[in-house]
């Protein structure tokens, strides 16, 4: 006869074994994933930095460093909001147009009403546009890709109409000095990008909202059944994307001193590239703010390096496209590596 008690003991032993085994596999998968996630940004970052120092004349000059930090910071601020949206399996293609509207509104308002009202007006305009994106996606149920592709066109039109297609000179010197001034030798936009990034990181990692965001991005059905208001989370993310695009737009206006309606054309490609390169998966889930920050600096280094080498700017488009493909393949490789650990699949 089968000795049941012995059989059960054996079964329990085998379960314990299986549990240890799965804990080991889980740890291994997590290690591999975080390694790939970090290497995906740190290796290119280090390579480009070293290559820049060796190959590019005056790469480490004070003016170039400031230039890279400011440009990287403005891109990073734009991309923080995009990180949230992409973590929710959404996308915001309208960031460039939103930024143009914010910059133009800020420029005109600064000229009319002065520094603080001008900054607030620019950011408020961008928040309104982000809200509109969110409403179109959540209330009218238009897929994010199509919705923001449409608003990309609409907002660009608004920016051009608002400025009559002509450049707007900013006369307020205090406003123009924001982007160029420094705090303890560090450019103000860079300080801002670190502060805003820290805020986003805190919200995503430590707050209830962040957990809900991962839940909606990772498994929308589970989120709904857990009583999470999915649409509210999505709406907030699109508003955040608008707000950060607007803040970056104000900084850009300050940096340039003169804005026009075709500002930041094609920005969506850069923003998406740095988010994905930073380790946030297009398949949704966890947003990686630190990665987005590093990837923005990386892109700024590449652009500055190519400029200093007098490479025609057309090549920068190619470099950006290549970078995006690289980032997406790292993203897929990462998920495949985890799958392999668990399932040993070939495909």
């Amino acid at each position: 006869m089968v000795d049941t008690s012995q059989a059960q003991l054996d079964a329990v032993a085998s379960i314990e074994h299986e549990r240890e085994e799965s804990a080991r596999r889980g740890a291994r998968a997590a290690r591999r994933q975080s390694l790939l996630q970090k290497l995906g940004i740190i290796i290119p970052f280090a390579l480009v930095l070293v290559a820049g120092i060796i190959l590019v004349p005056s790469f480490l000059s004070a003016s170039n460093i400031t230039n890279m930090l400011v440009n990287g910071a403005i891109l990073a601020i734009t991309a923080y909001g995009m990180t949230m949206v992409i973590a929710l399996r959404g996308i915001d293609l309208s960031v460039g147009s939103t930024q143009a509207v914010a910059a133009c509104v800020a420029a005109v308002s600064v000229n009319a009403w002065g520094l603080v009202p001008g900054i607030l007006a620019g950011i408020a305009a961008a928040i309104a546009l982000g809200l509109l994106n969110g409403v179109i996606v959540t209330k009218f149920r238009v897929p994010a890709f199509i919705a923001t592709l449409a608003t990309l066109g609409i907002y660009r039109g608004v920016a051009l109409l608002f400025t009559d297609g002509a450049p707007v000179m900013i006369t307020d010197t205090a406003f123009r000095s924001i982007a160029t001034s420094s705090l303890f030798g560090i450019p103000v936009p860079f300080v801002l990008s670190v502060l805003v990034g820290a805020g986003f990181w805190f919200v995503l990692e430590k707050m209830r909202f962040g957990k809900h965001l991962v839940a909606v991005g990772g498994s929308p059905e589970s989120a709904t059944d857990s009583g999470i208001n999915v649409k509210r989370i999505q709406l907030i993310a699109y508003v955040a994307a608008g707000a950060t695009a607007g803040l970056a737009g104000v900084l850009l206006a300050s940096q340039l001193g003169s804005v026009n309606g075709s500002l930041s054309t094609g920005l969506e490609l850069q923003a998406i590239a740095v988010v994905v390169l930073g380790g946030t998966s297009m398949a949704g889930g966890r947003g990686n703010i630190v990665g987005t920050f590093l990837a923005s600096l990386l892109l700024a280094m590449i652009n500055a390096g190519l400029n200093l080498l007098n490479v025609p700017s057309f090549y920068q488009y190619i470099a950006l496209g290549v970078l995006l493909v690289f980032a997406l393949s790292v993203d897929s490789a990462q998920r495949a590596a985890v799958r392999r650990v668990f399932e040993g699949r070939v495909a």
Partner: peptide, 24 residues
């Protein structure tokens, strides 16, 4: 109804997190 990207603790408390001022 689990979210693969969240930890066991976060999954169990999802939707009724222990928070103070929105911070978990």
């Amino acid at each position: 109804r689990l979210v693969p990207e969240l930890s066991i603790a976060d999954n169990i408390m999802l939707g009724h997190e222990l928070t103070s001022g929105g911070v978990v």
